[in-house]
Structures are given as structure tokens and as C-alpha cells.
């Protein structure tokens, strides 16, 4: 795995998310109200909804398609729902953010 720089924390609104386009699909990067950063595959385990478009609350995101609530920490569905999405390691150095991705990945734009 390589740490790939993806931008700064200021690129993501608090209680918001942005997405990263990779050759293996999109990754959603979340910023909570208290500036913690998490990354998940941008696909809800339920019907593939783009989690980066959901409402971020506490350490969770609600999928915009059918309201599954996913833990940003574990990628697991909270409450009575089932399902799990892959988490992606994130590292923060100062304001710069890095994702742990397949070796050889680099920034194209």
C-alpha cells in the first residue's frame, strides 16, 4: 500500500464529504463536525448508493437512496440494517490528507 495525497481538509466541508475517483471505483472521504476524517468505498452495501452524497452526522452517514445509516468508523450498517462497506485508511499530516491505496496509484488531476 502507498499513502497517496488527495488534498487538504479544507477541501471537505465540515459534516460533509467529497469523492475520489480511482481506477477501482470511487472512494468517499468524510469530515465530521469535529474534523475527524474517514474514507469508505462510495457504494452503499444496500443498493450501491453514493455515500458521499449522504448527510453526515456524528460518526455516521445516511445513504441518500434509502436511508441506510453507515458507521464511518467500521463501514457497518447501524441499527437494524445489515451490510458492510470497505473502509479505506486515511492519514492526516497537518492539513494534508492521504489515503492508503494500491501501490502505483498516483494523482492524475
Amino acid at each position: 500500500m502507498d499513502w497517496i495525497e488527495i488534498g487538504t481538509i479544507a477541501d471537505i466541508p465540515p459534516r460533509g464529504a467529497r469523492c475520489i475517483v480511482t481506477p477501482n471505483g470511487r472512494i468517499a472521504v468524510f469530515r465530521t463536525a469535529d474534523d475527524a476524517v474517514f474514507a469508505l468505498d462510495d457504494r452503499c452495501p444496500h443498493k450501491g448508493g453514493p455515500l458521499s452524497q449522504g448527510i453526515v452526522h456524528g460518526k455516521a452517514v445516511t445513504c441518500p437512496l434509502h436511508n441506510l445509516v453507515i458507521s464511518l468508523d467500521t463501514g457497518r450498517a447501524l441499527g437494524v440494517d445489515e451490510g458492510e462497506v470497505r473502509t479505506v485508511p486515511v492519514k492526516r499530516e497537518g492539513d494534508r490528507l492521504f489515503l492508503a491505496l494500491e501501490i502505483g496509484t498516483h494523482r492524475a488531476a
Binding site: I6, G7, R18, I20, V21, P23, T105, H106, A108
Partner: peptide, 13 residues
């Protein structure tokens, strides 16, 4: 603007 653009586009070498 941020709403309509990916934060980064990554490629494999």
C-alpha cells in the same frame, strides 16, 4: 464548486 467536482482523480502508473 466542491459539490460538483471530485476531490481528486487518481490513476494507476
Amino acid at each position: 464548486k466542491h459539490e460538483f467536482r471530485p476531490m481528486a482523480i487518481l490513476a494507476l502508473a
